[in-house]
Structures are given as structure tokens and as C-alpha cells.
Design a binder for these strands. Structure first.
Length: 153
DNA sequence: GCCAACGTTGGC
DNA sequence: GCCAACGTTGGC
């Protein structure tokens, strides 16, 4: 079992939106970055834990915990000309983009802010605290995940 | 809204 | 395959 961090802009899809979904489960579509795609397609497994992170907003940080309930499969929105993340170069016989399904496990009462995360001395591997980390799906080393979970309790 | 950092594109 | 131009991300 591995830990991951998924970023989302709450204006587009927030933790409350996930909470309002049937079974509190939603597919994580619209990822259009190859490195993130590789994680979604190849590395993220059933039962993996996902930190839900709000980005590009007033209160930036981790707001919840989710679990992977379906492993990587083709993101159908890439073929839909009406979709926001339509990719005209993607073909059904050779899909480019993948997604997973996640189910909300816990919404935290308090935000664990980016600032707080950065101030934790032993958190130094995850992309968040490294320079220029713009990946929207990133792995979290287990020891750092444990520290984050402890801070969120 | 600014801007630095990064990813992607496309001409050569 | 290089690299300049361009687009996007995301914290502030």
C-alpha cells in the first residue's frame, strides 16, 4: 500500500464535492500531464491512500483522506470534443490519458496548510515542499505520510 | 493579477 | 534532437 497526494482546485472540485458524490466516490479525470498519467496508469493501486489537497485558493493544504477504489483505466473525457480536457490527438485505439476512482474516507476538521507542512522538519521528499512542484498527482513516502497523518489527527 | 518554474510544441 | 517560444500551474 502506498500513499499519494492529489491536488484539486476547490473551485473546480472540492472535498465537499467529493463528499456529495454517490458513495462519496468519483473518478479523477482530466489529468493531462505525462508524469502524473504514468502514476495513474501504472503505479496507483487498489487500497492506496490519497491525501486530498486544495490548491490555488485561499486556504491551501490537505483537507482530507481518500482511498483508491478503482485502478487506472482510460479517461474517456479525452475523446469528448465537448469536454474541457478534450485531447484531439488522443485516439480510442491508442488512449493517452488515464484516471482512477477514489472514495472519501475522512474530511478533516482543520486544514493542514502548506505552510504547516513546509515547517515540518522531516517532510522533505514530497513534491509539495520541493521547488517548482507542479505535479497534480504525486507519491508520498510512507514515513512522511505517517507524519502528515499524525499532524492531521 | 503577478510571475517564476516548469512542460510542451514545433521549426529547423 | 535542439531550443526558443509559448502555455500552464500555483503560491503569494
Amino acid at each position: 500500500m502506498q500513499y499519494w497526494l492529489f491536488k484539486s482546485e476547490p473551485d473546480a472540485f472540492s472535498i465537499d464535492d467529493l463528499s456529495a458524490c454517490p458513495d462519496q466516490t468519483e473518478h479523477w479525470d482530466g489529468i493531462r500531464n505525462y508524469q502524473a498519467r504514468n502514476f495513474l496508469r501504472d503505479s496507483i493501486k487498489l487500497g492506496d491512500q490519497v491525501f486530498f489537497y486544495h490548491s490555488s485558493c485561499k486556504d491551501v493544504g490537505i483537507v482530507g483522506l481518500a482511498e483508491v477504489v478503482k485502478e487506472g483505466y482510460v479517461d474517456h473525457t479525452q475523446f469528448d470534443p465537448e469536454a474541457k480536457y478534450y485531447d484531439p490527438k488522443a485516439k480510442p485505439e491508442n488512449p493517452r490519458w488515464y484516471m482512477v476512482d477514489i472514495q472519501l474516507k475522512q474530511k478533516y476538521q482543520r486544514l493542514l496548510s502548506l505552510q504547516a507542512i513546509k515547517s515540518m522538519p522531516d517532510i522533505k521528499e514530497i513534491g509539495l515542499v520541493k521547488k517548482g512542484a507542479r505535479l497534480s498527482v504525486m507519491p508520498v513516502p510512507e514515513n512522511e505520510a505517517k507524519l502528515l497523518l499524525a499532524a492531521l489527527d
